[in-house]
């Protein structure tokens, strides 16, 4: 039976410190198993979020040896155990306690994005027709489990604290899913350019790298949104056409 030592950040919004816990490691274990074991036997009040334990709900986000990951999908055999494994909360958000952070900003941001507005139904029974190939790219974005790891790693939020000017990769993906939805008729480009700050992203692709759902956030969502904003607001020929075209 092997053991591993976890150096877990314990504290709250007023500060905290790392505390070491050593626990047994068995075959197939993930980091969340170890945290549960520590919780049950050594630190009943160790705070962490989790739900599905299968990478489907996005609750157990943390920084494992400094890398944003889901604890439930990080196998112990992928981590070196010759030195302590550090476990920290997501650092881009205010601390609540131990590994739990205050992610309520994300919920407020989502609410500011204009909701889905479908075109009138295609068929008399109130249904629509869409081809699979036309929904494939939207389905990629809708895989998002809202773990907020992309928000955690994004330097615009993490280092520059632009929470009031930039909605972050998660909500650019959310906006992309709405904008590219075959049925949607809403226009979200003005906010995207202004209040939602798509221009802040300088395509370092850190978000894509940490996404546990392997969504190609930068290439498939953010860059096309940037292009739409550019086409709409900065293309002189496009501007001329919009000004001169016959008004209906």
């Amino acid at each position: 039976m092997s053991t591993a030592t976890f150096r877990i950040w314990r504290g709250d919004v007023n500060g905290g410190k790392f505390v070491d816990y050593t626990t047994e490691i068995t075959e197939g274990m993930v980091v969340l198993d170890a945290v549960h074991k520590i919780q049950a036997t050594q630190a009943n009040d160790l705070a962490c979020r989790w739900n599905c334990k299968a990478g489907k709900c996005g609750s157990c986000s943390a920084e494992i040896n400094g890398i944003p990951k889901l604890m439930c999908m990080t196998r112990m055999n992928t981590l070196p155990t010759d030195k302590p494994i550090t476990l920290e909360p997501m650092r881009a958000f205010p601390s609540i306690r131990d590994l739990a952070t205050d992610v309520s900003w994300n919920f407020r941001v989502k609410q500011k994005i204009k909701k889905f507005k479908p075109r009138p139904p295609d068929a008399p029974d109130g249904t629509w027709r869409m081809q699979q190939e036309d929904v494939d790219r939207v389905q990629e974005f809708r895989k998002c489990i809202e773990c907020f790891l992309c928000q955690d790693v994004c330097h615009v939020l993490r280092d520059h604290h632009k929470h009031d000017e930039f909605i972050g990769p998660r909500f650019l993906v959310y906006t992309a899913a709405l904008e590219m939805h075959p049925l949607d008729t809403e226009d979200r480009l003005p906010e995207l350019k202004q209040a939602h700050g798509v221009g802040f992203c300088n395509i370092t692709k850190c978000c894509t790298k940490v996404c546990p759902e392997s969504i190609t956030i930068t290439d498939n969502a953010i860059i096309p949104l940037k292009e739409r904003v550019v086409d709409n607001f900065f293309d002189p020929l496009g501007w001329l056409w919009k000004e001169l075209r016959p008004k209906t």
Partner: peptide, 20 residues
């Protein structure tokens, strides 16, 4: 189910574009 589609759900499709 039809209501969910009106609210933005994107289900897999049949070849003729309906919900699979």
């Amino acid at each position: 189910v039809k209501e969910l589609e009106a609210w933005g759900a994107v289900f897999d499709r049949t070849p003729d574009g309906k919900i699979l």
